[in-house]
Write a protein that binds this DNA or RNA. Structure first.
Length: 296
DNA sequence: TTCCAGGGGTAGA
DNA sequence: TCTACCCATGGA
């Protein structure tokens, strides 16, 4: 086993725990979060091998990543992994304007004070899209099950036997719809996930280009809605993961929080959810993610 | 048995 | 743009 270290540093503090716990993704394979030790694990597939990542806080403005691999890493591998991790942890986000807005809201004052506001995402938009589709019209327990089975059955084996990487578009496409339905148990999502994987694997859809697109958010949203299985909720969630925070992905959970916090437990519409964070303008969704909700 | 979960596709208006 | 209806899955 070859072990190497990659250091990720930044000019501002980067609180690993706050980034990891920004939303539910840390509970979906191939990510694993060790709360006691403050360690983020991920099994990651490179072009030549699968590696095991272990990320930890290393001072206020730096993270250390231990990479375990069967074969020595090339310089290109290391640079590629560093870029993927910077994307995963949203280290490129400039939050100065959002922090100014947070100063006026007591329930968000912790955000600038504790240097929060970065959200956890997958290295590829492909993985984030499939995970988002697996959150629709189901419970978290089932989402974890669907994503877990996808990784266990179709992901490439890592250097530590027990863990696997997120499956490639090719792996999902070639597995076929029957496996996605019968083994992975994606339900009615199976044809959507298969079609997405096939179009990415076949080169008809360049999902990853959207990560660096400078198109207006409305145009980006249209592209996401064109994907079967992606509706208004999923599109908003994916836009958030692309660093466009002007629209909150409204699901039953968001409605419940906004209902109890702002409307005395009365039913709320999607527009009510957006309106609750209107003052945050293009930072609306980020304010929603980090808002300190009352218990219950 | 029925309901519903961090919704979405489709048809029809 | 809005509504009704259907969609697999599994826990309550």
């Amino acid at each position: 086993m070859n072990t190497s270290q990659i250091e990720l540093s930044h000019h501002v503090p980067i609180p690993l725990r706050a980034i990891v716990l920004s939303h539910g993704w840390c509970r979906l394979l191939p990510l694993r979060w060790d709360e006691e030790e403050g360690l983020l694990f991920r099994t990651e597939q490179l072009s030549t091998q699968v590696v095991e990542l272990e990320i930890r806080q290393a001072g206020e403005r730096a993270l250390d990543c231990t990479v375990r691999a069967a074969q020595p890493l090339s310089a290109a591998d290391e640079a590629g992994l560093a870029a993927r991790m910077r994307w995963m942890l949203s280290l490129d986000a400039d939050l100065a304007e959002f922090y100014r807005l947070c100063q006026a809201e007591p329930r968000l004052a912790h955000v600038p004070r504790e240097h929060k506001g970065r959200i956890l995402r997958s290295p590829t938009l492909f993985e984030d899209t499939i995970k988002t589709i697996c959150t629709t019209n189901t419970t978290w327990a089932q989402t974890k099950g669907m994503v877990g089975r996808l990784v266990e059955h179709l992901g490439a084996q890592g250097p530590l036997d027990e863990h696997r990487a997120f499956p490639t578009p090719q792996a999902i496409a070639s597995a076929g719809e029957d496996v996605l339905l019968g083994t992975v148990r994606l339900g009615y999502r199976a044809p959507y996930v298969h079609q997405l994987a096939a179009s990415v694997a076949g080169g008809e859809l360049d999902l990853e280009a959207l990560r660096t697109s400078s198109e207006p958010t409305a145009e980006l949203r249209k592209r996401l809605l064109a994907i079967k299985g992606v509706g208004p909720y999923a599109a908003a969630t994916l836009l958030n993961l692309l660093g466009r925070y002007d629209h909150i992905g409204v699901d039953t959970w968001a409605r419940k929080l906004v209902s109890s916090q702002f409307h005395g437990g009365q039913p709320v519409t999607d527009a009510d959810v957006q309106a609750a964070f209107e003052s945050f303008g293009p930072w609306r969704a980020l304010a929603f993610y980090f808002y300190e909700w009352d218990e219950g």
